[in-house]
């Protein structure tokens, strides 16, 4: 294992975050703070409790999860797409580094950034609403698992994309709708029965539900199923990446 190479890629990617601090950290935190103001304070004050939880607090896990998903995807996709775009990928491919090491470096950095943003949003939330986290270890576990899984998908998008427009397609057209419809702002139990069933095909439901359970002890779906679904998403990402490196898809000719 070329640990030094992993560390080098990881540190390089983290340094890029600090070079672009405003885009990387400040803007997602600001946009989430706006959600708190609009949905938590302005509209939320007119909504009573959901599942026995104050509405302002209820949306916190959903908002963190939504940021975590979009940040993991965009960090990891730009992380690997950028060297492909400017051509510096030659150096990674010609170095004595295994595909696994490349993935750990890039995905690890992307997931770290997403987790840091998630924690900053959590800290911001404490300023707006009273929150008590019932299962902090589970919360940390879901945070890490989700960040890693979606960073893997971001890595896949970054390899698949052949233009900056494509980098945006999946986060905008797939993940944001899934996050909005996956119970970020409501419990799926509030939906008509038919829509409840349809919603169960949305993988984000399980992520948000599990994460919300770690905060409040209540969930839309069983915690075991949530954990299982998160692990399936992780395994799927790993399988696709394994295949990419096996075939050299979009990396080697």
């Amino acid at each position: 294992m070329n640990l030094r190479a992993i560390w080098t890629i990881y540190r390089f990617e983290m340094a890029r975050t600090f070079r672009t601090l405003v885009q990387s950290i400040v803007s997602p935190v600001l946009s989430t703070a706006l959600y708190f103001v609009v949905f938590g304070a302005a509209i939320g004050s007119r909504i009573s409790e959901v599942e026995g939880v104050n509405y302002g607090a209820f949306i916190v896990p959903g908002l963190i999860m939504m940021s975590l998903l979009t940040q993991s995807l965009s960090n990891a996709s730009i992380g690997i797409y950028f060297p492909r775009f400017i051509g510096t990928i030659y150096e990674i491919l010609s170095a004595p580094v295994s595909p696994l090491e490349i993935v750990i470096g890039y995905v690890g950095a992307a997931a770290t950034k997403a987790i840091v943003i998630g924690l900053i949003i959590l800290a911001t939330a404490f300023l707006f609403v009273p929150i008590h986290i019932q299962h902090p270890l589970w919360m940390a576990g879901f945070l890490v698992l989700t960040a890693v899984s979606f960073s893997l998908f971001g890595f896949i998008i970054g390899i698949w994309a052949d233009g900056f427009e494509r980098l945006q397609i999946v986060p905008l057209l797939v993940v944001t709708p899934l996050a909005f419809l996956g119970g970020t702002f409501y419990s799926i139990k509030m939906l008509p029965p038919v829509w409840q069933t349809i919603t169960l095909f949305n993988p984000v439901v399980y992520l948000i539900s599990g994460f919300r359970w770690s905060f409040f002890g209540t969930s839309d779906v069983d915690i075991g199923i949530s954990l299982g679904a998160t692990l399936v998403v992780l395994a799927l990402g790993l399988a696709v990446i394994y295949r990419i490196f096996q075939t050299g898809y979009r990396l080697k000719t």
Partner: peptide, 10 residues
């Protein structure tokens, strides 16, 4: 420094 690290050199 990045290039050197990538090749696993101290």
């Amino acid at each position: 420094s990045f290039s050197r690290g990538l090749f696993g050199k101290t």
